[in-house]
């Protein structure tokens, strides 16, 4: 049985069916991400001063990934335009670039960004012990500047076994640069370039710590929302790459030979999904990386 109205428009809607279908699907996607963004807003508004971290993500890498997604949005629309102009070789090139961009985005996220976070450590200091760690936190300076306090010390954990071994009484942390010179005004706001943890070691007594973990979703509400939203977004990127690859492989050539307009419509529908994925990232990037 042949599915009707895959190429020509239905008289009543004026649209071919898949286009109505994808927009209805995107409407549901807006609500899905809308719910997650509203959770983000709630958690952020409700965070006590100092408990919503800034500058923990790698901004140049995030900017690069944003550029990759924008480039892929351009190439997918060019791939569709090439089909409309019956330039199949160009379609293959543009679609190939789109797939590469999608894969590059996922590789950066899964092979670099996330693992880097999993190796980073943070310890929330108990309010009663903040004074003891003032040389690392510099809260008097921040207070005088009208800035929120620092309540967490982050860096590279040297004694991983301390996370599980109750007999080890402190965490040995190679400090992030911000804690080596906390009263320096240059450290008041996050830097653009990522600077790895230093060799300066701090010993943080477990008795002074509210909670301490690697940068996992359980570390704080910031990372919980970060991993949830970027993870779901990454799944969407993966879905898009799979569909594009399907349309790029011999299936695409076969459909093009049968009916090029049908392939163009399929690419348009997949492209609409891809643009939506780009659109979500346009909000994710500033909310998590910059603000």
């Amino acid at each position: 049985m042949e599915i009707p109205y895959t190429v020509t428009a239905r008289p009543d809607t004026g649209l071919w069916n898949a286009k109505v279908g994808i927009w209805l699907f995107l409407a549901s996607e807006v609500m899905l991400f809308g719910g997650l963004f509203s959770a983000y807003i709630f958690l952020r508004l409700d965070a006590e001063p100092g408990y919503w971290p800034h500058g923990l993500l790698n901004v140049p890498v995030g900017t690069g990934n944003t550029a990759i997604l924008i480039a892929s949005s351009v190439t997918v629309v060019l791939a569709w335009a090439a089909l409309k102009m019956r330039q199949f070789t160009r379609y293959k090139i543009y679609m190939g670039i789109t797939i590469l961009c999608g894969v590059a985005f996922l590789v950066v996220k899964l092979a670099y960004e996330w693992p880097q976070k999993f190796e980073h450590f943070g310890a929330y200091i108990k309010p009663s012990a903040l004074e003891k760690y003032e040389p690392y936190l510099g809260n008097k300076h921040l207070l005088s500047e009208g800035l929120p306090p620092r309540v967490e010390i982050t860096g590279h954990l040297h004694n991983h076994e301390a996370l599980h071994d109750a007999s080890i009484k402190d965490y040995e942390v190679g400090l992030d640069p911000i804690y080596t010179d906390p009263t320096n005004p240059k450290m008041d706001r996050p830097h653009f370039l990522y600077v790895p943890p230093t060799e300066k070691i701090a010993h943080i007594d477990k008795a002074d710590v509210d909670r301490a973990t690697m940068f996992l979703p359980t570390h704080n509400t910031y990372f919980a929302t970060y991993f949830t939203i970027t993870g779901l977004h990454g799944l969407h990127v993966l879905g898009g790459v799979i569909v594009f690859t399907y349309l790029w492989l011999p299936f695409g050539s076969r459909l093009y030979r049968q009916n090029p307009e049908h392939l163009a419509n399929r690419v348009e529908v997949a492209g609409l999904f891809w643009h939506f994925v780009d659109l979500v990232w346009i909000f994710v990037f500033p909310l998590f990386y910059l603000l």
Partner: peptide, 25 residues
């Protein structure tokens, strides 16, 4: 986001039904 939706997603020239879906959304 407006540029992506208006130009790349062709909302600059779509049929009424799509706009209706988006208004409800």
């Amino acid at each position: 986001a407006g540029l992506v939706a208006y130009i790349f997603m062709h909302l600059s020239a779509e049929k009424k039904l799509i706009y209706r879906i988006l208004i409800f959304t």
